[in-house]
Every structure is written in structure tokens, then in C-alpha cells.
Design a protein around this nucleic acid. Structure first.
Length: 479
DNA sequence: TTTTGAGTTGTTCGA
DNA sequence: GTCGAACAACTCAAA
């Protein structure tokens, strides 16, 4: 056993604890841990700017845990792995499965190529509580509605969530030389150093993930069901980037939270992990999810085209303070509170009538938790064209939402400081504030804070009309 | 096959 | 200020 050298290919499983593929590789013999940055095959789904920053630090942290033995490569993964196998005596290749369509295709191809040279590939499920093929309906087709997917497909019919495992205790890593790169040569950090502030909001890496979970389990989850709606409260887990990069497994999260007892807060949080599973199931069974409307009737939706409006949204300059706060939180921290993601998302697709693709792309580039499955499924949901989508009449009002969920203005003032001195009463509708009040608060609308880029009442009616036009199109083409 | 009940997160209006 | 109803029609899941 000791002369066996096996590869463990780290991808979105950047941890040592509860990592089934890594554990299996370690059991087999001496391990060559590798990471490959493969922008070529990822193509248009190459990792976004903020996520690259996160990845850089996560890899550094993982490499430290591996005593500097993580080997870095860049380019076509199949070529790189084949070369490693050709030049060294590799007796097995291990990885945890990924579910992005391009990954699945590539993994199949690599596995087939290695089979030709008699090198076995072993893959594990390291990132889902239930894999997409475990949660099918009794007729063998995938669920398209969340509640039955989760209750019946996952909780009732599928296996219970397996218990997480500790890191392997005796890890033997090869100290051989493999023509690999230095981590810096991956060039994950931007040349213009905008990332330093972003990084300051996070403790990236496996240890940071465990601490975040522990804090949330002790403090955050106790009022989760209600508290999760208020962006100024510390009631959400903020685990999404750690889950995306696999610095923690959903199994670890599930069991740690379950340990807090059986109550509505715990149940609600677990169902949010269920939403993550649902998104992955959708992406697996509908690989066009990132691009194509799940409900094809939306293909005729009258989206508008307006670069200037899109830019105002991206930059947090719409004149609607809660929207701007969210978009600026995203830009500064690489994250946006879930409630605000919905408000900002609804504003883009329903008030501005801009295509959800624009939102999906911007979020994918700006979020540290950018995740193809979650991001695509969520944008389709907010646009109304997805699975189990929001009804047509559910159009968030950014004024009402701000007043309801950030009534003290703490969150909004944090990210839109130019409005800090504006009283609560006008914080979410500064254009209605009396001149004197604005003056006292140092606000010059159209100068240091924008006038609203659109009228909320009119745009709501326009969105409703757009949905109505959709209905007419359907009626014109009966099945 | 047919039928039945239900579907994450909202807003507005009028009583 | 609070409360309930209306806002469409459709698709999905399961019996």
C-alpha cells in the first residue's frame, strides 16, 4: 500500500474534514493533492472576480493545512491529469463530484480517458445532502416544486443526512516534484487591489467556516425564522461562500444546527439548505437553467434594453435607498443579505424590466458565494420564469420593503452614508422629503444622491401589463 | 385517466 | 391603524 501514489483533485471541496474523496484517497496510500484552474473549459462560466479573490485565500488556507503540499496547475484539466499520470506512477484519481454541466461533461471525459490507461477513477458526493438522482418522483422525473421536493423527495423518501466525519488522522502526502505552479501564478487576485477591503469582511478557509457555523448555531439560529428578514440583524448564517467552495460540507452544517434542537427556527434553516439542494437538482436535470427560461412562455416577455438603467442598478445609484444599499453591500463585501437580494432582484426585472440575465451575470461576477445552481435558479425565481416561481403580482415595493425590514435604517445608512442624517420617515423616499430637511441632512438630490431612476407606481403597472401581454401570447398559441 | 388541492419571501384598496 | 380580499391562470404532485 505504501508505494501507491494517488491523486486527490480538489475542486469545490476545499477542506480536510468530512471530505469523502480525500479520506478515500488517504486510505489508499500516499496522496498527491492538486488544484487546477481551468478557465478554458469553464468558458463563459469561468469564476467571477469576487469569487476568485475568495478562492485565492481559500487555497492558501488549504495549502497551509496540507503543509504546503498542494500542487497548483492551470489549463485544461484533462491534459494536466493525463500528463501527471503518464509521467508518474499514479494508481488512482479521486475527486468529489461537481454538478455544473461543463464539469459533468469534463469529468466523464477524463474518466473515460483514464480508463483507457487502466487508471481507476473514484468519485464521491462531497457537497450535497441528496444527489439529484436520489430525489426523483415515483415516476422517475425530477420535482419542479420545492415543497414536495423537500418534504417527500428529500426528507421522507431519501436516506437521512449522513453524519459528518473528522479529517483523516494519518495523512501521507507526497513530497515529489511535479512541474506545478506557485499559487501566485494562478493570478487569482486582481491587478488593481480592490480586493483588500472585501477580504476584511471575512475569515476565509476551513477554520473560518467552522467558526462561522459555530457562531450562527449559538447565536444566530435562535431567531432565524423571523430574524432572517432583517438585514441589519445578525440572524443569517453567511455560510454561503463557505458552502460554495466546500470549506464546509452541508452535512456538517445540518448536523450542527440540528444539535440545537427541534424547533421552527432550526427547521426553517434546514429548509434553506433544502433550497440549495433544489437548485442543484434543477441545474442537473435542466442544464440550460443558467440561460433558458424554465417556463418557455417567458421567451416572449417584453424585456427592455437600457444600458444606463442597468448601470445605475449595478452601481447602487437608482435613487431607491434600500436597493442602492444592497447593490453597494455586494460591491463592498462580495455578499448581499437575502432579503435585499430579493428586493434588488425584483427591482431589476420588474421595475426596470431588464432581463434577469443581466442580474445573474452581475451577481456571478460580484458575489463571493457565486454559485451557478443557486444563482440561476434564484434569478429565474424572482423573474417569475423559474420553477415554483413568484406569482406575477408579487412585485416588491422598495419603499415599503425598506420601511418594513430596515425600519431603523441601520442597514441602509451603513451602505448609503450620504443619507445617514435623513430622518427615518423619509429614508426610503428622499425625493418626498421637504427641502429644508434635505438641506439639513446635507443631501442634494441629483447631485450627491440620485433622483429615482424610475417611478415606482408607473413601473409596477407596466410590469403587470407586461405579464398580461404574456398571457395573450399564450392564448394565441393554444397547445 | 381524471380530479383535486396547492404553490417561500407581496401590494393595494376599501371597509 | 388594521384586516381581508383581490390580484390569473397554470402547472405540478399525488391520490
Amino acid at each position: 500500500m505504501s508505494d501507491q501514489l494517488v491523486i486527490h483533485w480538489f475542486r469545490q471541496d476545499l477542506r480536510l474534514t468530512d471530505n469523502p474523496s480525500f479520506a478515500a484517497a488517504v486510505k489508499e496510500g500516499k496522496v498527491l493533492p492538486i488544484f487546477i484552474l481551468d478557465d478554458v473549459n469553464a468558458g463563459q462560466y469561468a469564476i467571477g472576480g469576487a469569487a476568485r479573490v475568495w478562492l485565492h485565500h481559500s487555497l492558501a488556507s488549504l495549502n497551509e493545512s496540507l503543509n504546503g503540499r498542494l500542487r497548483f496547475f492551470r489549463g485544461d484539466a484533462q491534459t494536466i491529469i493525463s500528463e501527471l499520470c503518464r509521467q508518474h506512477r499514479i494508481t488512482g484519481v479521486y475527486w468529489n463530484r461537481c454538478y455544473e454541466p461543463w464539469r459533468i461533461q469534463q469529468d466523464n471525459s477524463i474518466e473515460a480517458a483514464l480508463a483507457l490507461v487502466n487508471i481507476p477513477v473514484s468519485t464521491c458526493n462531497g457537497s450535497l445532502l441528496w444527489e439529484p438522482l436520489e430525489t426523483l418522483k415515483s415516476d422517475g422525473t425530477p420535482y419542479k416544486v420545492f415543497t414536495p421536493f423537500y418534504r417527500r423527495g428529500c426528507l421522507t423518501n431519501a436516506d437521512p443526512v449522513r453524519a459528518p466525519k473528522p479529517a483523516p488522522d494519518k495523512i501521507s502526502l507526497t513530497d515529489g516534484v511535479f512541474n506545478s505552479l506557485q499559487q501566485d501564478q494562478l493570478e487569482l487576485l486582481p491587478i488593481v487591489p480592490w480586493h483588500q477591503q472585501l477580504v476584511s469582511y471575512w475569515h476565509i478557509g476551513e477554520q473560518g467556516a467552522q467558526q462561522t457555523l459555530e457562531t450562527f448555531a449559538r447565536e444566530g439560529v435562535t431567531q432565524y425564522k423571523e430574524g432572517r428578514n432583517f438585514p441589519a440583524k445578525k440572524s443569517v448564517s453567511r455560510l454561503s461562500p463557505y458552502l460554495h467552495w466546500g470549506e464546509i460540507s452541508p452535512h456538517q452544517v445540518w448536523h450542527r444546527i440540528q444539535f440545537e434542537g427541534d424547533n421552527e427556527n432550526v427547521e426553517h434553516f434546514k429548509s434553506e439548505l433544502g433550497w440549495r439542494e433544489f437548485s442543484y437538482s434543477l441545474l442537473y436535470h435542466f442544464p440550460e437553467l443558467p440561460k433558458k427560461n424554465l417556463q418557455s412562455k417567458f421567451d416572449t416577455f417584453p424585456w427592455r434594453n437600457d444600458e444606463a438603467l442597468l448601470k445605475s442598478w449595478q452601481q447602487g445609484q437608482t435613487g431607491y435607498p434600500i436597493v442602492d444599499a444592497g447593490m453597494r453591500e455586494l460591491w463592498q463585501t462580495g455578499y448581499m443579505h437575502n432579503r435585499v437580494r430579493m428586493i434588488a432582484g425584483s427591482f431589476l426585472v420588474k421595475n426596470l424590466l431588464l432581463h434577469w440575465h443581466h442580474g445573474e451575470q452581475w451577481f456571478r461576477d460580484c458575489l463571493v458565494d457565486a454559485d451557478l445552481a443557486n444563482n440561476s435558479a434564484s434569478w429565474q425565481w424572482i423573474a417569475g420564469c423559474g420553477a415554483d416561481a413568484a406569482p406575477y403580482f408579487r412585485i416588491f415595493n422598495p419603499i415599503t420593503q425598506g420601511e418594513k425590514f430596515d425600519s431603523s435604517g441601520e442597514y441602509t445608512r451603513r451602505y448609503v452614508p450620504e443619507l445617514a442624517k435623513l430622518p427615518d420617515r423619509y429614508l426610503f423616499k428622499p425625493w418626498l422629503a421637504p427641502e429644508e430637511l434635505l438641506g439639513n441632512a446635507g443631501i442634494m438630490l441629483g447631485d450627491n444622491y440620485p433622483m429615482p431612476v424610475i417611478d415606482i407606481k408607473h413601473s409596477r403597472e407596466r410590469a403587470l401589463a407586461a405579464f398580461k401581454s404574456l398571457k395573450q401570447v399564450i392564448n394565441k398559441h393554444p397547445p
